[in-house]
Design a protein around this nucleic acid. Structure first.
Length: 289
DNA sequence: CACGGAACCTGCCCGC
DNA sequence: TGCGGGCAGGTTCCGT
């Protein structure tokens, strides 16, 4: 569910926690920390007493460096994860917590506490080592287009060197991170490129337009507080974003293309959906060997 | 090794 | 009213 803009909204909302010390930790659902070597006990032990530094993000990964250490509290929201601020302590709260709260982290001093909620449990938290300021599980994730070190030429080469369909490449977080199903479809529509055109057959200019479109649509979504279709994506205060009103194709099957009026089509693709305008976004020639 | 598809979960919505 | 199928913002793993 959350792509780069949504994760960035969450990161910004977590800034007030910087500088606070972890007073108590409770894992309520072990699946939420399944990536932690050593499981729940190890997670709680490594986090207790640590001081959260200013939250950081790469692509869809989010983490708090732990002050004075080479460790980090790493979060991935998966499809339905939420980082929520709550005034009341979570440890010992029992049934007063929402239905999908998986981990509670209470902090010293004045201000809110942290809760990790996740309906589908594809997301999770871990306490991990960091190298050069980057958590180890994030080392293999490419920089996202908002990273000052983002290298457009390198991404261009990777994309045009792939025999895959362009959308598969766009969703590959080791090529460029942060783009998910919504913003891939929106960027492809803006650039008038069919999702299954072979990446290595796209002109440089088309790829450049596509990347610029991805940056533009994600920046607009960020300014709108992200995309929410329901209560699954919310900011740290439980509020929805409203970029869903600005979507041109995603989820718009049978509705008119905002550019040409042709009904938007939905194809099954990669075990999910691809939305596109069959007139603005023509498939390439069939792949020739 | 590159690629494509299934698996991992819960809950909602729709049609029958 | 109830049940089965389809669908959902992502990543990882396994087979080809």
């Amino acid at each position: 569910m959350p792509e780069l803009p949504e994760v960035e909204v969450v990161r910004t909302g977590l800034m007030p926690l910087a500088g606070r010390r972890v007073r108590a930790v409770r894992v309520l659902h072990p699946r939420a920390v399944r990536r932690q070597p050593g499981g729940t006990a190890e997670f709680e032990h490594r986090l207790l007493g640590q001081v959260l530094a200013e939250p950081r993000r790469r692509g869809k990964y989010l983490w708090f460096p732990l002050a004075g250490t080479d460790e980090a509290l790493l979060a991935h929201l998966g499809m339905s994860g939420q980082m929520l601020l709550a005034d009341a302590p979570g440890v010992g709260a029992g049934a007063d917590l929402g239905p999908h709260v998986r981990v509670v982290v209470d902090l010293d001093g004045t201000g809110p506490n942290l809760r990790f909620a996740d309906q589908r449990t594809f997301g999770g938290l871990t306490v991990v080592d960091a190298e050069a300021g980057l958590p180890v599980p994030v080392q293999h994730i490419a920089r996202d287009p908002f990273d000052p070190g983002f290298d457009p030429d390198a991404v261009m080469r990777l994309i045009r060197g792939s025999h895959r369909g362009i959308k598969r490449v766009l969703l590959d977080q080791t090529v460029v991170s942060g783009i998910g199903n919504i913003y891939a479809d929106e960027a492809l529509w803006r650039a008038r490129i069919h999702y299954d055109r072979s990446a290595d057959r796209l002109p440089r200019r088309a790829v450049a337009t596509l990347l610029a479109s991805a940056v533009a649509v994600m920046a607009e979504a960020l300014a709108a507080g992200g995309t929410s279709f329901d209560a699954l994506y919310v900011n740290v205060n439980g509020q929805s974003g409203w970029f869903d009103r600005s979507l041109s194709v995603y989820g718009q099957a049978d509705r008119p293309c905002p550019r040409c009026g042709t009904p938007i089509r939905r194809d099954r693709f990669m075990n999910r959906s691809s939305y596109f305008c069959p007139r603005c976004q023509r498939p390439g020639r069939p792949t020739a060997a």
